[in-house]
Design a protein around this nucleic acid. Structure first.
Lengths: 138, 138
DNA sequence: AATTTAACTTATAATGATTCTAAACTAGTG
DNA sequence: CACTAGTTTAGAATCATTATAAGTTAAATT
């Protein structure tokens, strides 16, 4: 996803109407050099700064959940206070910086293959993800 | 923690008054062969079955948070819908069974040493934990 | 291009989990 | 036994999220 036309097509092709609210949100989330981690609250504040007309909170919730359902966003649960969304939807790992509540991607290439010598009968593995909690040194 | 007398001593020694509500909750949580994973809601239901007099929800919240603060419980965030607590307070890993929302300990001995070849300047690692999501085979 | 309709947005109400409050109660101390 | 500080409690308050239902809009149909 990179420009408005592409957003329009992308949305339409996945069965979501390309409304101006959704395009606005796409621009904010996907016109970035790096992956982006955010909470609903972050997104709401950003949209209030960026966009002309206020997008209602309900629409923000609806859109984020629609995008998650379509696989454009991934939800990450680090702690009970807030839920994070991630524009990087691949299976990957995270640092969570407890000093400032920041979530940072940890690419698979930095984590050596994880070998688990236990399995649960009748269950198959859907994902294996590592969470590294960090804090300031001092 | 194993019997009432021990609970009384344990609570007192960590600066918590051994009230009958706290002892009741201790019995339920720590008189077990295995580690126990629960939500506040689970605990509330269990207490309603087990104990004579109803323990108020506020007290359950207070107690669980007091125990967490004292290091008798650990909080685990798997998804945004619910927060789990674990009587196993060591650094360890988990399976999360998406078919029935069950959290299962994955002992360190079953996970090969995790090597991470990236660090964040000025930050130190507090914990490294793996979450393996599983679901029914069929 | 106008009409229609199903999808979407919105403000607001409802919900549910958690925290707060302030009054009543209780463990431990003198 | 009386005192005090910690604890419990019911209910109110709060916060994030979801539901509702009325108005709006995209896009299919005519």
């Amino acid at each position: 996803m990179s420009n408005n036309v592409t957003f329009t097509e992308k949305l339409r092709s996945s069965g979501l109407r390309p409304t101006k609210q959704r395009i606005e949100i796409c621009k904010l989330l996907f016109n970035r050099a790096n992956t982006f981690h955010f909470t609903i609250n972050d997104l709401n504040k950003l949209l209030n700064k960026t966009s002309e007309k206020k997008i209602s909170l309900a629409t923000i919730y609806n859109t984020v959940h629609a995008f998650k359902k379509k696989g454009y966003l991934k939800e990450i649960s680090i702690n009970s206070e807030r839920s994070y969304f991630d524009t990087n939807v691949t299976n990957h790992h995270h640092f969570f910086d407890e000093s400032n509540n920041e979530l940072i991607d940890l690419d698979n290439k930095y984590v050596e293959k994880i070998t688990i010598s236990k399995s649960l009968p009748g269950k198959k593995i859907k994902s294996v993800e590592v969470l590294v909690k960090v804090a300031n040194n001092n």
